[in-house]
Design a protein around this nucleic acid. Structure first.
Length: 709
DNA sequence: GCCTGGACTTAGTAAAAACCTT
DNA sequence: AAGGTTTTTACTAAGTCCAGGC
């Protein structure tokens, strides 16, 4: 967004990508009016070319569904647990094409999912496949209970996500605390007392006064409109112009508050910490199928002003406070249901084990549903993640075929097929996102592959010594700019020319294509294939290949630099950018200072070594020989330290505006990294921090050094 | 087919915590 | 112990994809 990212005016990496939403804004500024009727355009386009002929692509899906049903031909209704268990055993023999089990795990594939006995629910204890409790009879006092290896057990195959689910419900935002009466609000220079409702919303704005947002017209307009809705009629009558509002004292007050918080004594801070820990222990976990699992976001989002990213038409709108009456609870029937706060009721309590969420509510800005779900370390998220990589690996084994096919389709006589083939080529080659249509005026104007418009690409028959160059320039997810110049095959180029013929800049480039059509096609090519699988596949395969290429037989820091560089190649491919840290320059300088100091230290040490050597030559005694050895060691040590610092500097510099985290967390098969660590004797901690190790526990446990993606 | 709602993954930034210096 | 810096975590917006109703 031009707001949030306003300090990024020159996001540029070593290549040619830029993220520069400010300058961009101008380019797009009259978009708002211009493509009001995009959809209509598309429709018009379509009817012009005759309605798109649609082969039935859902065959496959139906087949799958049938297969799913078959598994339940015994008619079990999941109500009878024993039956259910038996059924599961049977299912076990059915090979799950999706899953890779290394032979050494083959034997322990069963998961106990019995919920048949309340007293059985001991979250902290893990059970092995035989159902024996393998709890803490261990000697150690603080024995961190054995971690549950869900990946050695079976998955549900009937579409249910759990058998038993119990939790305490969400933690609500703290109630509004009015500001002290000496903290005044002024309208048109005159002190004015606000009603609590109006005051609360005013404080939201006051807190953001230092932020760029509050200078933006849309933000101010939206805020003011929603604020007025909270005012009493008198307030409404008086306060008619936001420019005349003075929130300065409120702003000061909140700044002082945060200062005070920072300045708190150790004891006070500890107390708060303990209280947070208590809440975490009480609300931060749930019990799902005999296991205590961490919840990702157990706190309800507090009210505030909506901060959309990019040029979001709704920025500044009031995000309302969520009450128990808005909340839907999901848990098992036979669990202890969470209690709403005294004097309140939940909107609904349901027992839907076909979904993974514990709590949901509808948000008022877009009207979408928000959820409380489990942590990435949980079984339910981990299984899915594992599955995702298995799908990507299946793509690996047929990607050559698919590539051959879409290249062939560039020649198709049907426009829709050509478009599909070119789009797929972009998705594959450039790791573009699918690009769903978005509702105009509801969100920032961003695009992905299928929603690219003519104005987003430029064609150059020849550029920088290369033929058939396509220049991409558009805002993608989160309004991050994608800028790239790529030479393409002549056929692609010619097709693009054709697609752009007789179109306005704001017409869709692929007017005969959308994500649904594309995904239906992909589904036919490979079971479970969708556009985003290409991102996962290309990210992971790139990491693997880059690691092979870059890892040298040097010391650990150098190897880690190689890893980070491989990771970086992926981040660049996926266009994962970040705002350069505010302190980036300074921190680089500091590092350089350290390096210089280290260099001085090194030359000193070298000089000392020299003189010690000379000394030893003259004296020829044990003592001076020893001294030489010591000095030698010292020099070595310092050399190593210097090297480390230099590597660190390189790494940091290269990482200035590239975010490695996103790909590491979402696109790179962790088994590749684990295998690499094992192969080169790198401690896994050097690559994954604690959270990451928890999320990827399955991979750390199962991948050995010759894992191949 | 087409639209909408629902569920779930992916994303960057802000805040908090940990770490490192002085 | 304070203060600055770096790393981690929390937060929540913004995507993808699918199913179900017309």
């Amino acid at each position: 967004m031009s707001g949030d990212h306003s300090h990024n005016d020159d996001r540029i990496d070593c290549g040619s990508r830029v993220n520069d939403s400010h300058k961009h804004k101008d380019k797009y500024k009259d978009k708002e009016h211009k493509h009001k009727d995009h959809k209509k355009d598309k429709e018009r386009e379509k009817s012009k070319h005759g309605s798109s002929d649609h082969k039935d692509s859902s065959d496959k899906k139906h087949r799958d569904k049938e297969r799913e049903k078959m598994k339940h031909k015994d008619g079990s209704t999941d109500k009878h647990k024993h039956k259910d268990k038996e059924k599961r055993k049977e299912e076990k023999s059915e090979p799950e094409d999706d899953f890779y089990h290394s032979p050494k795990h083959e034997k322990s594939l069963k998961r106990e999912r019995d919920d048949d006995n309340e007293s059985d629910i001991k979250p902290k204890k893990t059970k092995n496949k035989k159902g024996e409790v393998t709890d803490g009879k261990k000697k150690g006092k603080k024995e961190p209970e054995e971690k549950w290896k869900w990946w050695e057990e079976e998955r549900y195959t009937d579409g249910s996500k759990w058998r038993f689910l119990e939790h305490k419900g969400p933690v609500f935002a703290p109630p509004y605390e009015p500001v002290p009466s000496n903290v005044k609000f002024y309208y048109d220079g005159k002190h004015m007392r606000l009603s609590p409702q109006a005051e609360e919303v005013a404080t939201f704005f006051a807190k953001m006064l230092d932020h760029d947002y509050t200078t933006k017209d849309i933000f101010r307009k939206n805020f003011f409109k929603d604020w007025r809705k909270e005012m009493t009629s008198e307030e409404k009558a008086t306060i008619t112009d936001l420019k005349k509002c003075n929130f300065a004292e409120m702003n000061e007050y909140f700044k002082a508050q945060s200062e005070a918080r920072k300045a708190m004594s150790k004891e006070e801070k500890l107390k708060i910490k303990e209280e947070n820990e208590r809440i975490l222990q009480e609300y931060g976990f749930c019990i799902m199928d005999n296991h205590k699992e961490r919840i990702a976001n157990f706190r309800i989002e507090p009210p505030g002003l909506f901060r959309g990213r990019g040029d979001h038409p709704k920025m500044g709108m009031l995000k309302r406070r969520i009450r128990p009456e808005d909340i839907i609870i999901n848990c098992s029937k036979d669990s202890k249901h969470p209690k709403p706060p005294p004097g309140t009721k939940w909107k609904e309590v349901r027992h839907d084990n076909k979904v993974t969420w514990l709590v949901s509510w509808t948000e008022n800005i877009q009207g979408s549903i928000k959820y409380i779900m489990l942590n990435p370390s949980s079984r339910i998220k981990g299984e899915k993640d594992w599955q995702k990589y298995e799908t990507a690996r299946r793509l690996k084994s047929c990607v050559d075929r698919l590539r051959a096919q879409y290249r062939d389709d560039w020649k198709s006589k049907e426009m829709r097929i050509r478009q599909r083939a070119v789009a797929l080529y972009f998705i594959d080659k450039l790791a573009l996102r699918a690009g769903n249509e978005k509702e105009e005026g509801e969100t920032a104007d961003t695009v992905g592959c299928c929603s690219l418009r003519v104005e987003h690409i430029k064609l150059y028959p020849e550029k920088d010594g290369q033929e058939y160059v396509v220049e991409f320039d558009f805002l993608g997810k989160d309004s991050i700019r994608y800028y790239n110049k790529v030479p393409v095959e002549k056929r692609v180029y010619k097709n693009l020319q054709l697609f752009m013929e007789n179109k306005e800049p704001d017409d869709d480039l692929f007017d005969r294509l959308n994500t649904s059509i594309l995904n239906k096609h992909l589904q036919e090519l490979m079971d479970g294939l969708t556009a985003k699988v290409f991102r996962t596949y290309n990210a992971s395969i790139t990491l693997q290949q880059q690691l092979k290429e870059l890892t040298t037989d040097e010391n650990i820091p150098a190897k880690i630099l190689s890893y980070n560089r491989a990771n970086r190649a992926v981040a660049i491919l996926c266009n994962h950018q970040r705002a350069p840290p505010k302190t980036f320059e300074k921190s680089m300088q500091n590092l350089q200072t350290k390096i210089d100091a280290k260099k001085d230290q090194l030359s000193d040490a070298r000089r000392e070594l020299k003189s010690a050597k000379a000394d030893a030559k003259v004296r020829r005694d044990e003592k001076s020989k020893k001294a030489v050895e010591t000095k030698k060691k010292a020099v070595q040590r310092i050399e190593e330290q210097l090297m480390k610092l230099e590597v660190q500097a390189t790494d940091r510099e290269e990482n200035k505006q590239i975010a490695l985290g996103t790909s590491k967390l979402n696109y790179l098969d962790p088994r590749i990294s684990v295998a690499w660590c094992k192969k080169w004797g790198i401690p896994i901690e050097k690559i994954y921090n604690k959270t990451q190790r928890e999320k990827f526990a399955w991979a750390i446990d199962m991948a050995d050094e010759d894992f191949e993606f």
